[in-house]
Design a protein around this nucleic acid. Structure first.
Lengths: 131, 131
DNA sequence: ATTCTTATTAGGAATCATTCTTATTAATAA
DNA sequence: TTATTAATAAGAATGATTCCTAATAAGAAT
């Protein structure tokens, strides 16, 4: 594990722990869902605090940010894996597919574009939205 | 080609043609870039008109909407292909990789999630942002 | 334990992309 | 040519997210 250079400056706050915990307990929640969950225990928390902590935890590599086209969603499972997104409700689910190890190597001439990583998203309908 | 049921109600306007043309000429532009391009020829066009036409053309299948985490970008190349996104400037480039034909079939148990399609995005740095 | 430094917070204002509203205009059908 | 109504311009409204500022509170130093 690589020690975080900035770690010395980071403080452990009740709010940060509540945010961290909410993401772990909920299924790929967005900021609003985290906010509602944290509010149960800390009614006066600010939405900005939730957003700030989600961003900070993501920067530190503790969370993954999932861009959905709507509100971003967050994932505490940081090992490589893919997602399925419901095109109706926007919810995210883990995809049952092992990660491609070196998909980047299969690319042809990128014209100078430096490829660092990839992501795969499966789109469809979740069990609820299928009706 | 499948005839569009709603086609009978769609009208050809100068604005729509300018939007269509701008997307074809620019490289995966966002709405703002299309707006600026169209404005050269039609200074009084409204931004809402650009957004409305981009959405309409996307619904009709004439364009593809690329969700980037920032402003959406648009692509007039509608055959299946993947993209590379620059994590610095957000620009989109076509990925030199033939599409997986039936990647959905490789999935394990989706738990009732109906998978309809997939997309792959390569993330990295474009030639300009590499410096 | 008390004090100090400064990261973090609450709450609201601000921003950015996008959509909505409404009176007006213009493309196509009759 | 006239009638119908989709599309437009311009600005207001929305939703997600970030910024701002004075007040608070971790963690370090004393």
């Amino acid at each position: 594990m690589i020690p975080n250079k900035n770690k010395s400056k980071q403080r452990n706050t009740i709010q940060k722990n509540l945010v961290r915990n909410a993401v772990q307990c909920l299924n790929h929640p967005d900021a609003e869902e985290v906010y509602e969950a944290v509010r149960q225990r800390r009614p006066h928390i600010s939405k900005a605090t939730v957003y700030r902590n989600l961003s900070q935890l993501t920067e530190q590599g503790e969370l993954i940010r999932i861009d959905t086209g709507q509100a971003d969603r967050f994932d505490s499972r940081t090992i490589a894996h893919y997602h399925m997104r419901c095109r109706s409700c926007g919810k995210i689910f883990d995809a049952p597919l092992p990660p491609f190890e070196r998909l980047e190597d299969r690319l042809g001439d990128t014209g100078g574009f430096l490829v660092e990583s990839h992501s795969i998203e499966f789109i469809g309908l979740c069990p609820d939205c299928k009706q």
